[in-house]
Amino acid sequence: MAGHSKWHNIKRRKESQDAKRAKIFTKLSKEIFAAVREGGTDPQTNLRLRMALTKARAENIPNDNIERTIKKAAGDTGGVQYEEITYEGYGPGGAAVFVQALTDNKNRSAADIRHAFTKHGGNLGEDGCVSFLFDKKGQLLISKTSDIDEEELMLAAIEAGADECEAEDDYFYILTAPEEFEHVKKALENDYHFSKAEVTMIPQTNAELTDEHAEKMLKLIDALEDNDDVQSVYHNFKISDEQYDRVVNG
């Protein structure tokens, strides 16, 4: 596998860790809140909540914060209502961009997201214009360590129902069908620690951009991820370490 042909590019952008964590906490708290309002407080029967809790714990969000959010959502019968919306479009150079948002004001979100696309050389498109370029998959990332036997891990993952298990850079990447994600995760979680475990969107092909377009694309991704209403940003933009250094560090 060359580069990150099937996987998300590892983020290389340098950003304030405190600010980044605050954003993550806000987004995951909203997801937990919406999951509870939709399906109740029991993660055993509420798959959406179970997956939100998995993400929250992977990001080391304190249990007290999680419990407060669940209690607030369970007790708030007439408060804020979040609506799930997806946006699709093209970044500079034609890279595909798929955005998932969770908002209490869809007009505000649509305006802000359209502005981000326009400002950074992209175009917000119609529903369905790029979603067909992505596959919905369960993804499990496990950091490579000296005590992990690669062949043993891959065999265990495939036997549990994974579609693919490959080693690349510093991680083992395991892909599953969305409906098999929970089963594979449970089969492996007693023996392995996941750096990330989520159902995500994997691009079928990648877009390589000129330096000019790559710089704008990085700014577009940053602008979208910085929006509190945006939960996830998926794209098929592929950038090498060398190109990243050129466009970011000059």
Rank of each mutant, 00 (worst) to 15 (best):
V199Y: 10
D211P: 02
L188D: 10
T200C: 12
E208Q: 06
A223R: 07
E168P: 01
K216H: 05
T176P: 11
E159K: 15
A162S: 08
Y173C: 08
V184C: 12
A207L: 04
A167V: 15
E215T: 00
E159L: 13
L218E: 14
K219F: 00
K196F: 07
Y234N: 14
Q204L: 05
K216M: 12
D229Q: 00
K185N: 10
D228Y: 11
T200I: 13
L188I: 08
L175W: 08
T205L: 11
V233I: 00
A223V: 06
S195H: 12
M201C: 04
V199H: 08
M217D: 12
Y173V: 10
E198K: 15
L209W: 01
E208H: 10
A177N: 10
E225H: 12
L224D: 08
I221R: 09
E179P: 04
H183C: 06
D170C: 05
A214P: 03
V184N: 02
K186M: 15
E182N: 03
L224C: 07
L224E: 03
A223C: 06
D228P: 11
Y173W: 06
L209S: 07
N190K: 13
A214E: 05
M217C: 14
K186C: 15
F181M: 03
K185D: 11
L224P: 04
H213M: 02
N190P: 02
Y171A: 01
N206D: 12
L209E: 00
H193K: 14
A214M: 09
G161M: 04
E225P: 06
M217H: 07
E168K: 03
D222A: 14
A207W: 01
Y171D: 05
N190W: 04
K196I: 05
K186V: 13
D226K: 15
I202E: 10
H183W: 01
A160N: 03
L175N: 07
N227S: 03
F172L: 12
S195Y: 09
S232T: 15
E166I: 08
P203R: 10
A207M: 04
E182Y: 02
A162V: 09
T176D: 12
L218H: 11
A160G: 06
I202C: 07
H183A: 09
E179T: 08
G161Y: 01
Q231H: 09
D226E: 15
V233E: 07
D170S: 14
I174M: 11
E198P: 07
H193Q: 13
M217T: 15
A177K: 04
L218F: 06
F181G: 01
A167H: 05
K186F: 14
L218Q: 03
A214W: 05
H235K: 11
D222Y: 15
E225T: 10
D226L: 14
